[in-house]
Every structure is written in structure tokens, then in C-alpha cells.
């Protein structure tokens, strides 16, 4: 035995503590809220912060599974189409006589299957990139939605269905409660379980994972399936808020969601990120959107601001990582 000991305490340094992406995001979030408060009187009330998120939380369900996909080093641009397809099938099957609860379950089954197909394609055909696979299925899924409903709307849901998107439990919107529950589930899944550990390991070095006995194909399929399931949840809340559905709903959602994940500091190269980042990013983009809405600025301007924000954030992160690498003497390949 050697006299050498290996410490098990985490080294603490103030620099590492303050050198975290989340501080920047928190500052950004506070800044946006202060800006918003100039636009409307009585902004800083509990009601603002409880009710405003209802407008954007439907999208937020997609952020955590998308984070998992990006941590793997992949991307999924088909989520918007999955939402449209599952929502359309739910509406059509309800109007064809299926009871609403059964139609809702069908919606989740459809979306989960779509995700599963994405995953299987990626696992079976490794030479295809996730971008290509999901661009193809994006077109296919939305195409099917158009074939089923053509360019029409379908709705007339029972009145209780609107509770999902509009209902309150006490003072708190129902959607917020569901969101909190999912946030906790995903935080645990990503950061506290074997599954999460394998996720980050694969994002860093997929070959080493294969040699370490991790079933990398299963991981790909699971993550895509979870993404599909969460797209179904989004479809439920979105349809409930809109009261009816069309084959073109949720188009462009995938880009918003990817933007939130990247703004949240998750590396598109895979293997790096913390769930707190995307969580803050959801509210940053949500409140920014809300504020610009109050100001009567069109959605297109928001897109421009979002784009700039993304480029700046990715740039800042890379600067930070480079500096760290140089210090620790790691040669990047």
C-alpha cells in the first residue's frame, strides 16, 4: 500500500462558483423583468409571475428531453410535426366518436411511437445523422397530419378539456404544476440516475461507452421515445389552450426549443450541460416574448433578438471553455 491518499472532498473555489453560466442567465432574466416592469404598471405582482408562464409553458415540456438529445450530441427537429400529428389524430378520433380520455391516451401513444421510430432509425442506421433522420420524419409526420385533416381545423372538445391549458388549482395554473412535476422528474433523471450518467458519458465519448458495456443503441432509442412522449404532453396542453387543432400547429417549435437548450448552456457538441440552464432559458425567452408583446412588437423582432442572443451566448461559452482548457493543460483534438 502506498502512503499516497486520494481525497474524496470536492475542492471548493470561489472562482469556479462564480464562473458558472447560470449567473449570466439569472442576470439576464432579472434584466428582462426590470425592463418589462417599465412597460406596465403593477408588473411586480404575484399574479404576473403565476399567470404569464401559462403562455409559454406548453413549449417548455419539450426543453428537457431536447436537452437529453443535445447532450447525446444529436438533434431532433421533428418535434413540431409530432405535436401536430398526435394533436390532429386526437381531434379526429374524438370527433369520430372515441371518448375524450381515450383520445388523449391515443395522442400520447401516437407521439411516443413517432419518437420511437426516430430513435430506431438512428440506432439502426448509424451512418445517418440525427439531423437527416429527423428532417425526414418531420416532413413525413406533418404530411400524414395534412392527409388526415387536410387544411382544416378540428375541435369541439368537451368543456372540461380546456382545464388543461386554462385551469387553476387555487392560485396556481394547472399547467405550471404539471411543469414543476416534470422539471423535478427530469432533473432527477438527468443528474441523479444511471441513465443520466450514461447520457453524459455517451455525449463525451460514445466509443468508450460501447467498450464499457453501455448499450448505446438502447440509449438512443429511449431518449427519442421520451422526446416523443413529451411531444404528446405538449400536444395535449397546446390543443387545450387553442380549443381546436390544425395540421400546421406547432410549426417552428423545434427551433424555439433548441434555442432554449443552447441558451441554457448545453453544448451542441454533446456531453455538457446542467438542467438549471435550460430551465432559466425557458423563462428568459418566455418573459422576453411577453414583454415585447406588451410593447406591441411583432414576433419577427423577437426572432431577431433570439438569434442574436443565441450567437452571443454560444460565443461567450466557447470563450469560457477555451480559457479553462488552456489552464488545465488539456489538448483538444
Amino acid at each position: 500500500m502506498s502512503e499516497r491518499t486520494i481525497q474524496t472532498e470536492k475542492p471548493w473555489s470561489w472562482k469556479n462558483f462564480f464562473f458558472q453560466w447560470e449567473w449570466f442567465l439569472i442576470a439576464l432574466l432579472i434584466g428582462i423583468n426590470i425592463f418589462n416592469s417599465f412597460l406596465t404598471p403593477y408588473y411586480f405582482t404575484a399574479d404576473t409571475f403565476l399567470s404569464t408562464p401559462m403562455n409559454f409553458l406548453d413549449k417548455a415540456f419539450l426543453v428537457f428531453p431536447m436537452m437529453m438529445i443535445i447532450v447525446l450530441g444529436n438533434i431532433d427537429v421533428s418535434v413540431g410535426s409530432i405535436i401536430a400529428l398526435s394533436s390532429v389524430i386526437m381531434a379526429v378520433s374524438y370527433n369520430a366518436g372515441l371518448p375524450m380520455p381515450a383520445a388523449m391516451v391515443l395522442c400520447l401513444i401516437v407521439s411516443t411511437t413517432c419518437g420511437l421510430i426516430n430513435g430506431l432509425l438512428q440506432a439502426k442506421f448509424k451512418e445517418l445523422s440525427s439531423t437527416i433522420v429527423t428532417i425526414s420524419t418531420q416532413i413525413i409526420y406533418r404530411g400524414i397530419a395534412y392527409i388526415i385533416l387536410e387544411d382544416k381545423a378540428s375541435g369541439k372538445f368537451p368543456s372540461w378539456f380546456s382545464f388543461l391549458g386554462w385551469g387553476y388549482v387555487g392560485n396556481v395554473p394547472f399547467i405550471t404544476i404539471v411543469f414543476v412535476v416534470f422539471t423535478i422528474i427530469f432533473a432527477i433523471l438527468i443528474h441523479r440516475t444511471r441513465f443520466g450518467r450514461q447520457l453524459f458519458a455517451m455525449g463525451n465519448n460514445s466509443t468508450a461507452c460501447r467498450y464499457s458495456g453501455i448499450k448505446t443503441e438502447n440509449m438512443l432509442v429511449s431518449v427519442s421515445t421520451i422526446m416523443g412522449f413529451m411531444a404528446g404532453i405538449t400536444a395535449l396542453f397546446l390543443t387545450s389552450r387553442m380549443g381546436s387543432t390544425r395540421p400546421n400547429v406547432a410549426s417552428g417549435y423545434e427551433l424555439d426549443v433548441i434555442a432554449m437548450v443552447v441558451l441554457g448552456g448545453v453544448s451542441t457538441a454533446g456531453g455538457k450541460g446542467r438542467i438549471t440552464g435550460p430551465l432559466l432559458a425557458i423563462f428568459i425567452i418566455g418573459f422576453l416574448n411577453y414583454g415585447l408583446g406588451l410593447f406591441n412588437i411583432s414576433a419577427q423582432v423577437l426572432l431577431i433578438i433570439l438569434g442574436v442572443l443565441l450567437i452571443v451566448s454560444v460565443m461567450l461559452q466557447n470563450l469560457r471553455f477555451d480559457k479553462r482548457r488552456q489552464k488545465s493543460g488539456v489538448v483538444s483534438k
Binding site: 450518467r197 458519458a201 463525451n204 465519448n205 466509443t207 468508450a208 461507452c209 467498450y211 464499457s212 453501455i214
Partner: peptide, 18 residues
């Protein structure tokens, strides 16, 4: 480097990966 380790990871996580 390619098949055995996750270079960016700490010692403990590398050891338990398999």
C-alpha cells in the same frame, strides 16, 4: 484515449462507468 476513457471526466466517474 478513444476506447477507454472519458477524458473530460473526473477519476471517479471514469472508474465506475463500466
Amino acid at each position: 484515449l478513444k476506447q477507454g476513457l472519458v477524458l473530460d471526466w473526473q477519476l471517479s466517474r471514469n472508474i465506475t462507468l463500466a
